[in-house]
């Protein structure tokens, strides 16, 4: 068990290293030298030298990488070219609203998927099951921003029930106000998440239901409910945990779309604006940290498997 943990940990470290190098080199080789952002500097050679020195840009590449990495780890992400403010501040302002939206969407989507997925797995090929299967394909095929637009047309303009833009009404910001702003973006995200999760929950449960030990458990006199809770679900947990961990990029993409359509003041919208403006410090920080988060989530999922499945805990 220790061996596998160490192995996966080393692999994750390697991936994180690769991610940071890739991000660093992309930024380093990206067209448009940072110097060009300050045209007046070019007039004075000594100023240029000083400017480079200050930012360690006169050092060899590996040294530059190391100092960049240590700054990134300490939370010193540099200045935004667009806002001319520290990137860390900009992110700190926007992170809570993204987390609020994404975590809520994740929890609702996963919960619905578990309930519905287990139900339709038990009723395989019933009409409910067929409907859920069609929905799960349709749900992942709908572009989030388009669904958002349709919702805005219907429920913000035609029947003005919810707000179409932002997170709070200026001057308000009470909980009910934020909730009613959240409704439409949440629907967009959950529509997609739920579809994505439900097909995996369904097939994870279905795969286990067809195994012999389920029949053997019934033969011991367990009721269907007991069989489901004690034997089927624990065995379906591994694929479901995998999907939950792997869905982090899906969630991120969903947040980008929903935030863009509904002008939700979060990281997703921020990254789109920053990319449009080629605000490299912001782009690279978000890339680095998102990728690192995904790598770490995958690692944690692997650790969780070891606790779920005794067969993986072999000594090597």
């Amino acid at each position: 068990m220790i061996f596998q943990l160490v192995r996966r940990f080393t692999q994750t470290l390697l991936v994180l290293f690769g991610v940071s190098v890739a991000t660093f080199l992309t930024m380093h080789w990206a067209p448009g030298h940072p110097l060009q952002a300050n045209p007046e500097l070019r007039l004075d050679p000594t100023a240029v030298e000083r400017w480079l020195q200050l930012r360690n840009l006169d050092q060899p590449l590996p040294a530059q990488y190391l100092s960049w990495l240590s700054r990134m780890l300490r939370g010193d992400f540099g200045q935004s070219l667009l806002y001319n403010r520290p990137v860390i501040e900009l992110i700190r302002e926007r992170l809570p609203s993204t987390l609020l939206l994404t975590v809520t969407a994740f929890l609702i989507g996963l919960f619905l998927a578990l309930v519905v997925g287990i139900y339709v797995a038990k009723k395989q090929n019933s009409w409910v099951d067929r409907m859920v299967q069609v929905y799960s394909l349709a749900g992942i095929s709908v572009p989030g921003y388009w669904l958002g637009i349709v919702l805005i047309i219907c429920f913000a303009y035609r029947f003005p029930l919810f707000s179409a833009v932002g997170m709070r009404t200026p001057g308000d910001g009470s909980l009910p106000d934020i909730l009613q702003h959240m409704v439409l973006p949440l629907i967009v995200m959950v529509f997609h998440n739920f579809a994505y999760y439900v097909r995996h929950v369904r097939s994870a449960v279905l795969n286990v239901l067809n195994l012999d030990f389920v029949r053997a458990a019934k033969a011991r006199g367990l009721t269907d409910k007991q069989v489901m809770l004690w034997h089927v679900l624990p065995n379906s947990a591994i694929p479901i945990v995998t999907i939950a961990a792997l869905s982090l990029p899906v969630l991120f993409t969903g947040a980008m779309m929903a935030e863009q359509v509904f002008a939700w003041p979060g990281i997703g919208r921020f990254i789109v604006t920053s990319t449009m403006a080629r605000d490299y410090p912001v782009i690279m920080t978000v890339n680095l940290y998102t990728a690192a988060l995904v790598a770490i989530a995958n690692f944690l999922a692997d650790v969780l498997y070891l606790f779920i499945d005794p067969r993986l805990r072999v000594k090597a």
Binding site: D212, F213, R215, I308, R311
Partner: peptide, 8 residues
């Protein structure tokens, strides 16, 4: 082998 739940 198939009739026993591997996780319990």
């Amino acid at each position: 082998a198939a009739c026993l739940n591997p996780l319990k």
